[in-house]
Design a binder for these strands. Sequence first.
DNA 1: GCAGCTGTACGAGTTGAGTCGAACTTAGCA
DNA 2: TGCTAAGTTCGACTCAACTCGTACAGCTGC
Lengths: 131, 131
Amino acid sequence: MPRSMPGSIGATGAPAVRALPEPPGLPEPLPEPGRDQLRLETVLGALSDPLRLTIVRKLLLESEDYDHSCGWFGLDRPKSSLTHHFKALREAGVTRQRQYGLERRSQVRVEDLDARFPGLLDLVAAWTPQG
Amino acid sequence: MPRSMPGSIGATGAPAVRALPEPPGLPEPLPEPGRDQLRLETVLGALSDPLRLTIVRKLLLESEDYDHSCGWFGLDRPKSSLTHHFKALREAGVTRQRQYGLERRSQVRVEDLDARFPGLLDLVAAWTPQG
DNA sequence: GCAGCTGTACGAGTTGAGTCGAACTTAGCA
DNA sequence: TGCTAAGTTCGACTCAACTCGTACAGCTGC
């Protein structure tokens, strides 16, 4: 479970573009807000939906690899609905999306969110549907 | 600043009604969800609005007394709009409201929220409008 | 090429939230 | 008794979000 790293960057003084500590050669991320453009009310709004909470929680708890395509989640919704929700998460700054050929894979922006809103992802990881 | 008590009850095993560690003789709270009926997606949805974030943050940081009436916040909105937002916060379980004669005073349910969603109120307290 | 797959774009229908005015209720007080 | 102030309730409007079907674009492999 990746929900143990304590946000090793710590401060919020990063530039509006991202500095990725990731393996090189990745496709460029799709447009997204920079770390210091993240707004609490926007992030909370993106997470105030059970389906999107399910997506983010599954990414946090079960993504043994790096990132995951849309179909990996096994969500029983039409594709156009899923596009809508994944786009909402990305535009709020919760997830990052990269294009790998056909697939568009998503990952949670753990470091950015831990730096700006510490503890928030722990709440998402502890969430359970309709309990 | 009341943002330092570490949720002294700790567990989430309370019954659906509330057990108040408060001075007696208070008016009964208006209808609200019990502690273990609080839903993360509902609470996040209630907090995904700048005006409501302002209300909760002001209650957390500046409420030197116990609770506060609607007019104490100095919000420049019509009364019917304020009623709407205070009701949304109460029905989501973020605030508790009591009727004192004419006034309806609000307080944040700090213990309940700290017990169910630890760290969430710290994010609200650290929030700043349009920054 | 052509099928098959992943996902987007667009548009329409529907629902729900926010905003507000106007009328009402209630409490306190002169 | 009547005024005033705090807040609710109702209804209407607007607007954004959700849902989904359909059509389209791009990659992959036969």
